[in-house]
Design a protein around this nucleic acid. Structure first.
Length: 368
DNA sequence: CTCCAGGTAGATCGCGCGTT
DNA sequence: AACGCGCGATCTACCTGGAG
Protein backbone atom coordinates (compact mmCIF):
# COMPACT_ATOMS: atom_id res chain seq x y z
CA UNK A 1 0.00 0.00 0.00
CA UNK A 2 2.03 2.83 -1.38
CA UNK A 3 1.45 6.20 0.25
CA UNK A 4 -0.39 8.10 -2.47
CA UNK A 5 -0.77 11.50 -0.93
CA UNK A 6 2.39 13.28 -0.10
CA UNK A 7 3.27 16.90 -0.35
CA UNK A 8 6.70 18.30 -1.01
CA UNK A 9 6.80 19.89 2.42
CA UNK A 10 6.30 16.80 4.60
CA UNK A 11 9.99 16.10 4.91
CA UNK A 12 10.45 15.69 8.67
CA UNK A 13 9.46 12.39 10.21
CA UNK A 14 9.62 13.76 13.76
CA UNK A 15 6.35 15.67 13.50
CA UNK A 16 4.50 12.36 13.22
CA UNK A 17 5.36 11.83 16.89
CA UNK A 18 3.53 15.02 17.76
CA UNK A 19 0.45 13.93 15.81
CA UNK A 20 0.50 10.56 17.60
CA UNK A 21 0.57 12.33 20.97
CA UNK A 22 -2.06 14.93 20.05
CA UNK A 23 -4.53 12.32 18.81
CA UNK A 24 -6.60 10.33 21.27
CA UNK A 25 -7.69 6.72 21.66
CA UNK A 26 -11.22 7.59 22.77
CA UNK A 27 -12.15 11.04 21.54
CA UNK A 28 -12.24 11.72 17.80
CA UNK A 29 -10.42 14.85 16.69
CA UNK A 30 -10.88 16.30 13.23
CA UNK A 31 -7.85 16.63 11.00
CA UNK A 32 -8.22 20.40 11.00
CA UNK A 33 -8.19 20.47 14.77
CA UNK A 34 -5.10 18.25 14.92
CA UNK A 35 -3.43 20.44 12.30
CA UNK A 36 -4.01 23.66 14.21
CA UNK A 37 -2.78 22.03 17.42
CA UNK A 38 0.30 20.73 15.62
CA UNK A 39 0.90 24.19 14.23
CA UNK A 40 0.69 25.72 17.70
CA UNK A 41 3.10 23.18 19.15
CA UNK A 42 5.56 23.61 16.29
CA UNK A 43 5.48 27.38 16.73
CA UNK A 44 6.77 27.01 20.28
CA UNK A 45 10.19 26.85 18.85
CA UNK A 46 10.01 29.63 16.31
CA UNK A 47 12.82 31.48 18.01
CA UNK A 48 15.20 28.60 17.53
CA UNK A 49 14.38 27.99 13.91
CA UNK A 50 16.73 25.80 11.94
CA UNK A 51 17.32 26.84 8.38
CA UNK A 52 19.48 23.88 7.41
CA UNK A 53 16.60 21.46 7.05
CA UNK A 54 13.44 21.59 4.98
CA UNK A 55 9.96 20.74 6.05
CA UNK A 56 9.76 22.85 9.20
CA UNK A 57 6.13 23.63 9.94
CA UNK A 58 5.49 27.26 9.12
CA UNK A 59 1.79 27.34 8.30
CA UNK A 60 -1.49 25.64 9.02
CA UNK A 61 -1.65 24.15 5.53
CA UNK A 62 1.74 22.62 5.97
CA UNK A 63 0.76 21.26 9.42
CA UNK A 64 -2.27 19.69 7.80
CA UNK A 65 -0.10 17.94 5.27
CA UNK A 66 1.69 16.26 8.15
CA UNK A 67 -1.61 15.19 9.67
CA UNK A 68 -2.51 13.57 6.35
CA UNK A 69 0.84 11.80 6.30
CA UNK A 70 0.10 10.54 9.81
CA UNK A 71 -3.14 9.06 8.47
CA UNK A 72 -1.28 7.39 5.61
CA UNK A 73 1.23 5.81 7.95
CA UNK A 74 -1.13 4.22 10.46
CA UNK A 75 -0.66 6.83 13.20
CA UNK A 76 -4.23 8.09 13.05
CA UNK A 77 -7.36 6.69 11.44
CA UNK A 78 -9.25 8.62 8.75
CA UNK A 79 -12.65 7.16 9.58
CA UNK A 80 -12.71 7.08 13.36
CA UNK A 81 -10.49 10.17 13.68
CA UNK A 82 -8.82 8.51 16.65
CA UNK A 83 -5.39 6.98 17.01
CA UNK A 84 -4.66 4.08 14.70
CA UNK A 85 -2.51 1.13 15.82
CA UNK A 86 0.90 2.76 15.43
CA UNK A 87 -0.31 6.01 16.99
CA UNK A 88 -1.47 4.08 20.05
CA UNK A 89 1.80 2.21 20.19
CA UNK A 90 3.89 5.37 19.98
CA UNK A 91 1.77 7.14 22.59
CA UNK A 92 2.54 4.39 25.12
CA UNK A 93 6.28 4.39 24.51
CA UNK A 94 8.63 6.26 26.84
CA UNK A 95 9.70 8.42 23.90
CA UNK A 96 6.24 10.00 23.94
CA UNK A 97 6.91 11.54 27.35
CA UNK A 98 9.21 14.24 26.06
CA UNK A 99 6.78 15.12 23.26
CA UNK A 100 3.88 15.27 25.71
CA UNK A 101 5.90 17.53 28.00
CA UNK A 102 6.43 19.90 25.11
CA UNK A 103 2.78 19.76 24.04
CA UNK A 104 1.58 20.48 27.57
CA UNK A 105 4.12 23.26 28.02
CA UNK A 106 5.98 21.55 30.87
CA UNK A 107 9.27 21.99 29.04
CA UNK A 108 10.40 24.30 26.29
CA UNK A 109 11.25 22.65 23.01
CA UNK A 110 14.88 22.62 21.95
CA UNK A 111 15.93 23.28 18.38
CA UNK A 112 16.14 19.59 17.58
CA UNK A 113 13.13 18.26 19.43
CA UNK A 114 10.95 17.89 16.38
CA UNK A 115 13.68 16.72 14.08
CA UNK A 116 16.10 14.38 15.83
CA UNK A 117 14.92 10.89 16.62
CA UNK A 118 16.32 8.47 19.20
CA UNK A 119 17.68 5.19 17.89
CA UNK A 120 14.52 3.35 18.95
CA UNK A 121 12.37 6.01 17.27
CA UNK A 122 14.38 5.71 14.07
CA UNK A 123 13.61 2.02 13.96
CA UNK A 124 9.97 2.60 14.87
CA UNK A 125 9.50 5.03 11.98
CA UNK A 126 11.65 3.01 9.61
CA UNK A 127 9.32 0.14 10.34
CA UNK A 128 6.07 1.96 9.78
CA UNK A 129 7.26 3.88 6.73
CA UNK A 130 8.60 0.75 5.04
CA UNK A 131 5.36 -1.06 5.84
CA UNK A 132 2.98 1.67 4.73
CA UNK A 133 4.93 2.77 1.68
CA UNK A 134 5.58 -0.76 0.52
CA UNK A 135 7.20 -1.51 -1.87
CA UNK A 136 8.04 2.07 -2.90
CA UNK A 137 10.29 3.18 -0.05
CA UNK A 138 12.08 -0.17 0.13
CA UNK A 139 12.97 -0.01 -3.55
CA UNK A 140 14.22 3.56 -3.10
CA UNK A 141 16.51 2.34 -0.31
CA UNK A 142 17.83 -0.47 -2.52
CA UNK A 143 18.45 1.91 -5.41
CA UNK A 144 20.28 4.31 -3.09
CA UNK A 145 22.43 1.43 -1.85
CA UNK A 146 23.58 0.67 -5.39
CA UNK A 147 24.48 4.32 -5.96
CA UNK A 148 26.20 5.00 -2.65
CA UNK A 149 26.27 8.71 -3.58
CA UNK A 150 23.82 10.55 -5.77
CA UNK A 151 22.15 13.89 -6.28
CA UNK A 152 18.57 14.87 -5.90
CA UNK A 153 17.79 15.29 -9.59
CA UNK A 154 19.12 11.88 -10.60
CA UNK A 155 17.19 10.34 -7.73
CA UNK A 156 13.95 12.12 -8.60
CA UNK A 157 14.09 10.96 -12.20
CA UNK A 158 14.88 7.36 -11.36
CA UNK A 159 12.39 7.19 -8.51
CA UNK A 160 9.55 8.59 -10.61
CA UNK A 161 10.30 6.91 -13.91
CA UNK A 162 11.44 3.46 -12.82
CA UNK A 163 10.53 2.75 -9.22
CA UNK A 164 7.20 4.58 -9.03
CA UNK A 165 5.32 2.79 -11.85
CA UNK A 166 6.62 -0.59 -10.70
CA UNK A 167 5.71 0.05 -7.09
CA UNK A 168 2.23 1.10 -8.18
CA UNK A 169 1.85 -2.05 -10.26
CA UNK A 170 2.76 -4.20 -7.27
CA UNK A 171 0.36 -2.33 -5.01
CA UNK A 172 -2.50 -3.13 -7.41
CA UNK A 173 -2.90 -6.61 -5.94
CA UNK A 174 -3.71 -5.37 -2.47
CA UNK A 175 -5.67 -2.25 -3.44
CA UNK A 176 -9.43 -1.98 -3.16
CA UNK A 177 -11.33 -2.28 -6.44
CA UNK A 178 -12.28 1.37 -6.21
CA UNK A 179 -8.70 2.48 -6.11
CA UNK A 180 -7.55 0.07 -8.79
CA UNK A 181 -8.80 2.11 -11.74
CA UNK A 182 -7.13 5.22 -10.40
CA UNK A 183 -3.86 3.34 -9.92
CA UNK A 184 -3.99 1.81 -13.40
CA UNK A 185 -4.43 5.27 -14.90
CA UNK A 186 -1.51 6.54 -12.85
CA UNK A 187 0.69 3.66 -14.02
CA UNK A 188 -0.15 4.41 -17.67
CA UNK A 189 0.79 8.00 -17.07
CA UNK A 190 3.96 7.17 -15.18
CA UNK A 191 5.21 4.87 -17.92
CA UNK A 192 5.39 7.87 -20.23
CA UNK A 193 7.15 10.13 -17.70
CA UNK A 194 10.63 9.62 -19.08
CA UNK A 195 9.78 10.19 -22.75
CA UNK A 196 7.86 13.29 -21.86
CA UNK A 197 10.64 14.70 -19.73
CA UNK A 198 13.18 14.12 -22.50
CA UNK A 199 10.91 15.84 -25.01
CA UNK A 200 11.44 19.24 -23.42
CA UNK A 201 14.13 21.19 -25.20
CA UNK A 202 15.61 22.84 -22.13
CA UNK A 203 15.91 22.16 -18.45
CA UNK A 204 14.34 25.54 -17.79
CA UNK A 205 11.23 24.49 -19.68
CA UNK A 206 11.07 21.08 -17.98
CA UNK A 207 11.12 22.36 -14.42
CA UNK A 208 8.08 24.48 -15.11
CA UNK A 209 5.92 21.53 -16.12
CA UNK A 210 3.25 19.92 -13.98
CA UNK A 211 5.04 16.64 -14.28
CA UNK A 212 8.09 18.13 -12.59
CA UNK A 213 5.85 19.55 -9.87
CA UNK A 214 4.61 16.03 -9.29
CA UNK A 215 8.16 14.68 -9.04
CA UNK A 216 8.91 17.26 -6.37
CA UNK A 217 5.93 16.25 -4.32
CA UNK A 218 6.56 12.52 -4.41
CA UNK A 219 10.31 11.88 -4.43
CA UNK A 220 12.14 14.44 -2.23
CA UNK A 221 10.09 13.88 0.94
CA UNK A 222 11.00 10.20 0.81
CA UNK A 223 14.69 11.00 0.54
CA UNK A 224 14.34 13.35 3.50
CA UNK A 225 12.62 10.65 5.56
CA UNK A 226 15.59 8.41 4.91
CA UNK A 227 17.89 11.18 6.13
CA UNK A 228 15.92 11.46 9.38
CA UNK A 229 16.15 7.69 9.78
CA UNK A 230 19.95 7.84 9.25
CA UNK A 231 19.72 5.58 6.23
CA UNK A 232 21.00 8.45 4.10
CA UNK A 233 23.33 11.31 4.94
CA UNK A 234 22.92 14.73 3.45
CA UNK A 235 26.03 15.91 1.64
CA UNK A 236 25.26 19.54 1.11
CA UNK A 237 22.45 20.85 -1.02
CA UNK A 238 20.78 18.26 -3.16
CA UNK A 239 23.38 15.56 -2.55
CA UNK A 240 23.01 12.35 -0.59
CA UNK A 241 25.12 9.39 0.40
CA UNK A 242 24.21 6.08 2.01
CA UNK A 243 25.12 5.71 5.67
CA UNK A 244 28.06 3.23 5.67
CA UNK A 245 26.40 1.15 8.40
CA UNK A 246 23.45 0.60 6.09
CA UNK A 247 25.65 0.08 3.06
CA UNK A 248 27.33 -2.84 4.78
CA UNK A 249 23.97 -4.58 5.03
CA UNK A 250 23.19 -4.20 1.34
CA UNK A 251 22.81 -7.86 0.57
CA UNK A 252 20.64 -8.63 3.58
CA UNK A 253 18.47 -5.59 3.00
CA UNK A 254 17.81 -6.62 -0.55
CA UNK A 255 16.69 -10.05 0.60
CA UNK A 256 14.53 -8.80 3.48
CA UNK A 257 12.88 -5.81 1.78
CA UNK A 258 11.63 -8.03 -1.02
CA UNK A 259 9.99 -10.61 1.23
CA UNK A 260 6.20 -10.76 1.53
CA UNK A 261 4.98 -8.24 4.10
CA UNK A 262 4.39 -10.58 7.01
CA UNK A 263 7.73 -12.28 6.64
CA UNK A 264 9.49 -8.98 6.13
CA UNK A 265 8.16 -7.64 9.44
CA UNK A 266 9.71 -10.51 11.32
CA UNK A 267 12.97 -10.56 9.37
CA UNK A 268 13.56 -6.85 9.86
CA UNK A 269 13.79 -7.65 13.56
CA UNK A 270 15.98 -10.72 13.07
CA UNK A 271 18.33 -9.62 10.28
CA UNK A 272 18.37 -5.81 10.08
CA UNK A 273 17.53 -3.99 13.31
CA UNK A 274 20.01 -5.98 15.44
CA UNK A 275 22.80 -4.26 13.51
CA UNK A 276 21.36 -0.77 13.97
CA UNK A 277 22.25 -0.33 17.61
CA UNK A 278 23.94 -1.88 20.61
CA UNK A 279 21.10 -4.09 21.75
CA UNK A 280 21.20 -6.97 24.13
CA UNK A 281 18.85 -9.86 23.57
CA UNK A 282 15.65 -9.57 25.60
CA UNK A 283 15.03 -12.63 27.76
CA UNK A 284 11.64 -14.28 28.31
CA UNK A 285 11.05 -12.56 31.60
CA UNK A 286 11.71 -9.08 30.21
CA UNK A 287 9.40 -9.80 27.29
CA UNK A 288 6.60 -11.06 29.54
CA UNK A 289 6.99 -8.06 31.82
CA UNK A 290 6.80 -5.71 28.86
CA UNK A 291 3.65 -7.39 27.53
CA UNK A 292 1.86 -7.10 30.86
CA UNK A 293 3.04 -3.55 31.49
CA UNK A 294 2.03 -2.62 27.94
CA UNK A 295 -1.43 -4.07 28.30
CA UNK A 296 -2.11 -1.96 31.36
CA UNK A 297 -0.74 1.15 29.68
CA UNK A 298 -3.11 0.68 26.76
CA UNK A 299 -6.11 0.12 29.01
CA UNK A 300 -5.18 3.09 31.17
CA UNK A 301 -4.99 5.38 28.16
CA UNK A 302 -8.47 4.31 27.08
CA UNK A 303 -7.92 1.60 24.49
CA UNK A 304 -10.94 -0.63 24.98
CA UNK A 305 -9.88 -3.67 22.98
CA UNK A 306 -6.20 -4.39 23.10
CA UNK A 307 -5.30 -6.32 19.97
CA UNK A 308 -2.62 -8.92 20.43
CA UNK A 309 -0.81 -7.83 17.28
CA UNK A 310 -0.63 -4.26 18.52
CA UNK A 311 0.51 -5.31 21.97
CA UNK A 312 3.24 -7.45 20.45
CA UNK A 313 4.56 -4.65 18.27
CA UNK A 314 4.46 -2.33 21.27
CA UNK A 315 6.57 -4.81 23.22
CA UNK A 316 9.17 -4.97 20.43
CA UNK A 317 9.63 -1.21 20.35
CA UNK A 318 9.37 -0.70 24.10
CA UNK A 319 12.19 -3.21 24.55
CA UNK A 320 14.28 -1.36 21.96
CA UNK A 321 13.86 1.80 24.02
CA UNK A 322 15.41 -0.09 26.89
CA UNK A 323 18.29 -1.33 24.76
CA UNK A 324 16.93 -4.81 24.20
CA UNK A 325 15.95 -6.54 21.01
CA UNK A 326 13.50 -9.31 20.24
CA UNK A 327 11.16 -10.21 17.37
CA UNK A 328 7.37 -10.18 16.95
CA UNK A 329 7.31 -13.99 16.71
CA UNK A 330 9.29 -14.37 19.92
CA UNK A 331 6.93 -12.01 21.71
CA UNK A 332 4.05 -14.06 20.37
CA UNK A 333 5.52 -17.26 21.78
CA UNK A 334 6.08 -15.65 25.16
CA UNK A 335 2.48 -14.45 25.17
CA UNK A 336 1.27 -17.97 24.36
CA UNK A 337 3.27 -19.42 27.20
CA UNK A 338 1.67 -16.83 29.51
CA UNK A 339 -1.84 -17.93 28.52
CA UNK A 340 -0.89 -21.54 29.28
CA UNK A 341 0.83 -20.77 32.55
CA UNK A 342 -1.84 -18.36 33.81
CA UNK A 343 -5.10 -19.35 32.10
CA UNK A 344 -7.07 -17.58 34.84
CA UNK A 345 -5.32 -14.24 34.28
CA UNK A 346 -4.35 -13.96 30.63
CA UNK A 347 -6.99 -14.47 27.93
CA UNK A 348 -7.26 -13.99 24.25
CA UNK A 349 -10.45 -13.99 22.19
CA UNK A 350 -9.43 -16.11 19.23
CA UNK A 351 -11.83 -14.59 16.68
CA UNK A 352 -10.89 -10.96 17.28
CA UNK A 353 -7.37 -11.28 18.61
CA UNK A 354 -8.26 -9.17 21.62
CA UNK A 355 -6.31 -9.65 24.79
CA UNK A 356 -7.29 -9.40 28.43
CA UNK A 357 -4.91 -9.56 31.34
CA UNK A 358 -6.17 -9.55 34.91
CA UNK A 359 -5.51 -6.45 37.00
CA UNK A 360 -3.58 -8.10 39.84
CA UNK A 361 -1.06 -9.53 37.43
CA UNK A 362 0.41 -6.05 37.06
CA UNK A 363 1.37 -5.79 40.71
CA UNK A 364 4.99 -6.71 40.97
CA UNK A 365 4.65 -8.80 37.87
CA UNK A 366 3.86 -11.75 40.09
CA UNK A 367 2.67 -13.81 37.17
CA UNK A 368 6.17 -14.40 35.89
C1' DC B 1 -18.45 26.34 0.29
C1' DT B 2 -13.63 23.32 1.34
C1' DC B 3 -9.38 21.50 0.09
C1' DC B 4 -5.31 20.11 -2.01
C1' DA B 5 -2.42 19.15 -6.27
C1' DG B 6 -0.09 21.70 -8.98
C1' DG B 7 1.97 26.26 -9.96
C1' DT B 8 5.11 29.97 -9.04
C1' DA B 9 8.02 33.67 -6.90
C1' DG B 10 11.82 34.37 -4.78
C1' DA B 11 15.83 32.38 -2.31
C1' DT B 12 19.91 30.01 -2.61
C1' DC B 13 23.51 27.35 -4.61
C1' DG B 14 27.50 26.39 -7.19
C1' DC B 15 29.68 26.44 -11.84
C1' DG B 16 32.76 28.66 -14.74
C1' DC B 17 35.36 32.37 -15.69
C1' DG B 18 38.30 36.43 -14.94
C1' DT B 19 41.51 38.41 -11.83
C1' DT B 20 45.29 38.59 -8.69
C1' DA C 1 46.63 28.23 -7.68
C1' DA C 2 43.32 30.45 -5.20
C1' DC C 3 39.73 33.52 -4.84
C1' DG C 4 35.41 35.61 -5.58
C1' DC C 5 31.84 37.38 -8.64
C1' DG C 6 27.76 36.92 -11.52
C1' DC C 7 24.29 34.41 -13.30
C1' DG C 8 21.83 30.38 -14.75
C1' DA C 9 20.26 26.27 -12.41
C1' DT C 10 17.94 24.45 -8.81
C1' DC C 11 15.26 24.34 -4.66
C1' DT C 12 11.67 25.47 -1.37
C1' DA C 13 7.79 27.58 0.77
C1' DC C 14 3.78 29.44 -0.04
C1' DC C 15 -0.27 30.40 -2.92
C1' DT C 16 -4.38 29.56 -5.80
C1' DG C 17 -7.65 27.73 -9.29
C1' DG C 18 -10.53 24.43 -10.07
C1' DA C 19 -12.39 19.91 -8.54
C1' DG C 20 -15.59 17.94 -5.56
Amino acid sequence: MVIYETHGDVCRVGYLRVVACLADDRIPKTFDYLASQLYEVARQRDKIKRYDVTGIIASNVNARNYVILAAETGIIDRHTQKRAAYGSIYAQLESAKRINDIIDGRVNAEADDFITLTQAEKIFFMHILIEHDHPFLGEIILWALKQRRFNRTTAMNYIMEDIYPEALAKSLQTASSKKRDIIRKEIDDAERFKDRRLSYSSQAEWIRTRQYAKYRHVAPPRLEWLVDLSILNREGRGKFSVNPEIARMGYELERVLRLPMKKMREELFTSIYPYLGNWSKADQEEIAKTIVEGYHRFVYSGVKQVKLEVLEMYACFRLLERGMITTPNTVHQVFNSLTIKYPDKVFITPTTGEVEIAEDSARGYTII
